[in-house]
Design a protein around this nucleic acid. Sequence first.
DNA 1: CAGAAAACGTATCAAACATTACGTCGGCGA
DNA 2: TCGCCGACGTAATGTTTGATACGTTTTCTG
Lengths: 277, 277
Amino acid sequence: MASSIAETITDRLTDMPAGERRAAQALIASYPMLGLKTVAEFAQRAGVSSPTILRLVARLGYQNYAEFQSALNDELAARLQSPLSRTGRARPGRDGGVAPLLSAMLENISETFRVVSAKQIGEIVTLLSDPRRKVHLVGGRFTDPIARYTTAHLAIIRPGVSHLDGQENQWRDRLIDMGKRDVLVVFDIRRYQDSLLHLAEKANARGVTIVLVTDQWLSPIARFASHVIAGRTSVPSAWDSSAALFILAEHLIAGVTERLPEQSAARIREMDALRRE
Amino acid sequence: MASSIAETITDRLTDMPAGERRAAQALIASYPMLGLKTVAEFAQRAGVSSPTILRLVARLGYQNYAEFQSALNDELAARLQSPLSRTGRARPGRDGGVAPLLSAMLENISETFRVVSAKQIGEIVTLLSDPRRKVHLVGGRFTDPIARYTTAHLAIIRPGVSHLDGQENQWRDRLIDMGKRDVLVVFDIRRYQDSLLHLAEKANARGVTIVLVTDQWLSPIARFASHVIAGRTSVPSAWDSSAALFILAEHLIAGVTERLPEQSAARIREMDALRRE
DNA sequence: CAGAAAACGTATCAAACATTACGTCGGCGA
DNA sequence: TCGCCGACGTAATGTTTGATACGTTTTCTG
């Protein structure tokens, strides 16, 4: 079976009428971009008429031109998500295969930081470094640990950092403590939790500045967030990897540490002293 | 100077109205495919109206939507021609230098997996996949979130998984429930916590199988553990990065998922059904 | 060489589309 | 508090686009 559309086309190239074959070859020559343009342009570049293009598409088994284009689109999106895996099949890896998972994670991380700019992180760090602002952190089912991790570190560097734990209805009580000066950091990936959305909505209504760390599909909370950073999460597995989000969180921690060097150093000394007793 | 459209967008992200920023972020999140679709679809996926998309495009300096799409098209075509040439944005790390931290983390991860063998992970996975064994997880001050994360995932895949939370003296009560068939997974990095050491010691005395995930300096718990995997943690900062440990944890999760495919699938379905009600 | 069938392009139409004009809401300053 | 300005969405409009019907040309067959 042909795995890519290009393969399907070359396979059936022989039993095509002359005009359609010319069109098909033109498509393959500048694949897949030509297929994403309009029928008229496709036709012109191939030196045939529009109906010939449509007949070709029909011959390939697509109901209409739009369907054909989405197929190309999907293929392209898949290829872009993993830039390393050329058109050649990714090979699901033998069972033992640790490597494919690891490389997917590394690629997620690289890709995430290709998209997220230092400036974006810097702005969030500025927010989190403001000693006058209280910082609240919370996450979803799988991301809440990342919120906790971030809290644990930030709480060392500066005062006024807290994690929203406990039951979801307890969160509402905490909302009373939040005002316009405060920051709410939310971690939320698929499947997005309604409870987090409600929380963000209410916090937003109170004027709280919301920072959202989410996946590439963007949690609906983005609607209320003034800062959004999206990490890649897809790995060859039944679940999503939060590794990129974790590393984003560590970058935020690093940023705040760097921004408040003297303060964090003093606090660390103080805490060490307290612990030693 | 911005070399890619994505960069141009992120740079100018701050001085944009809220709606356009949402659109821009949506575009970045699924770049560049979203920009190649129709205005209406772009608008819907971004949660704004069509005119907002067009205003964004105009703000970016394009005469009309078609011109904007051709620009994306050209960029995409260029990238496809040489898949290796990622949009070169190594970003020579000016002062803000996100890069050195990131590359240190990536190096930690690679180095970790150069040392940790697939066999080691496989053995631990075998332990964690044994349905007759209960699994308890716990971590230190900064690593406990990783323990929680691992718990959240394993608990979906199989029964009998629990995280040791609450105060440290509560842990002792939980020890009663642990026997020779059980597994205790401990995450512990510098500075190693005495409380964890005590817990591990007592658990070991009860015949509990101990799995230790630690840093390259090896927690003293290694003495009691039957399985030890060490991740690199050093980064150019005042604190240590747990990213490698996090990714190790995700590999354990992946391993167990793969080992118990039918069971996890069934449990996931069941849980989804419960949640839907 | 005659006839038919297939291939292809032209002309046309209806749906989808980008684009513009306009009204409304919300925030900011007087 | 009132009035102004920018941001945003709704609705209307003119254009583009994919799709189809039909006539012409080409190709194969007997």
